[in-house]
């Protein structure tokens, strides 16, 4: 379930949303996208419901996102447990590069799939 659809639901049936939110929070399914590579945040961290997202997006293979490259070749194994910054922070401009790859990871897929948030404010929601 993507965010904009969640918003529509929220607008339509508030009790349902409250129930859903309570449910996922209780189960710890919503997490923040955190990375120790960011000393401080330019924008609020992105909320990300891992399982719900993958179910809605039909992602089965971990290394679709948690990719692993060796000599420029995508490996079969996944990089679960590693932070993006452990590979991507040694790029040309540090933090900007890390931001760039995070955005490429999420946004370019959303654009390809024509699903999911793409504008700045759609992901980097202010704390309610």
């Amino acid at each position: 379930m993507n965010n904009s659809r969640a918003k529509n639901l929220w607008l339509l049936i508030i009790p349902a949303l409250l129930f859903l939110a309570a449910a996922v929070c209780a189960q710890g399914y919503i997490t923040k996208v955190e990375d120790s590579g960011f000393e401080k945040h330019t924008r609020p961290a992105v909320s990300f419901a891992h399982d719900a997202h993958n179910e809605a997006a039909g992602i089965e293979s971990c290394n679709t996102c948690h990719h692993m490259y060796e000599d420029g070749k995508l490996q079969d194994q996944a990089s679960i447990g590693m932070e993006c910054s452990s590979c991507h922070l040694d790029g040309y401009s540090g933090r900007l590069e890390l931001i760039r790859v995070y955005h490429l990871q999420c946004k370019s897929c959303h654009l390809d799939q024509k699903a999911g948030p793409v504008q700045c404010a759609q992901c980097h929601r202010k704390e309610e």
Binding site: S93, L96, R100, C120
Partner: peptide, 20 residues
């Protein structure tokens, strides 16, 4: 910041940006 980041995403170039 948002513009600098968008440009970095598209063209791979970047520069310093203002605090929000």
């Amino acid at each position: 910041a948002a513009h600098v980041i968008l440009i970095a995403e598209s063209w791979g170039i970047g520069w310093a940006y203002l605090p929000n």
